[in-house]
């Protein structure tokens, strides 16, 4: 139970493809948010807050992988890998992305560690969304000089990010992964064995 997950090549590729997929989605979201939504709210000082509504998407790869593989170390490694893959894709935010990605992975890992990698029900998954919200927020606090901002404003940001995380990283990730297991794609992973459905069984 406590030994770290031994990565197979196919898991590494899988985690990287998921990272690319979410990086692609985030990129599209961030761009549509910053060019369509942000201009509308920017005059009110809310331009930078727009991203908070989709922030939960950034945690999805680590949560999804950890939920599917259910082994120690998966969340931190996939979280960090998500950052590295985005840097390799040529993201301009290399300097900030990597520490963020690492801390987000750590936030997810901490929650699963606390439950000893035994429970993966909805409450735990929701907690696993709160973890990275806190770690990413603390990092952004220092980096973005949020101590100089109005407290109510920062608190609002936190609440939005938390809601986004609960929705995307908690609920949606679980729904997606459970459905993947149900259709039989996860046969060789711990989550999939619960739903194992052998095509050769007589119905």
């Amino acid at each position: 139970m406590w030994n770290l997950y031994k990565w197979k090549l196919k898991d590494v590729i899988l985690a990287s493809i998921i990272s690319v997929l979410f990086a692609f989605i985030c990129f599209a979201t961030v761009h549509s948010v910053s060019f369509v939504v942000a201009p509308l709210v920017m005059p009110f000082g809310f331009g930078d807050i727009a991203i908070e509504f989709v922030f939960g998407i950034f945690f999805m790869s680590a949560t999804l992988a950890a939920y599917v593989i259910q082994k120690p170390g998966v969340a931190v490694i996939v979280g960090t890998m998500t950052g590295v893959v985005q840097v390799l894709m040529g993201s301009a935010f290399a300097a900030t992305l990597l520490p963020s990605a690492f801390f987000q992975g750590l936030g997810v890992e901490a929650v699963f560690f606390a439950t000893r990698y035994k429970k993966f029900n909805l409450p735990v998954m929701l907690l696993a969304a709160v973890g990275p919200t806190i770690t990413s927020f603390v990092l952004a606090w220092y980096r973005g000089l949020w101590m100089d901002l109005d407290f109510g404003f920062v608190a609002t940001r936190f609440v939005i990010r938390l809601c986004s995380a609960l929705l995307f990283s908690g609920i949606i990730t679980k729904l997606l992964a459970d459905r993947l297991a149900k259709v039989g794609v996860l046969k060789s992973y711990p989550l999939g064995t619960k739903y194992s459905q052998d095509i050769d069984d007589e119905s």
């Binding site: 149900k182 259709v183 039989g184 794609v185 459905q197 095509i199 119905s203």
Partner: peptide, 10 residues
């Protein structure tokens, strides 16, 4: 014969 199975398992 496969009607009950997941399409992805075909």
């Amino acid at each position: 014969v496969y009607k009950k199975y997941s399409p992805y398992l075909l």
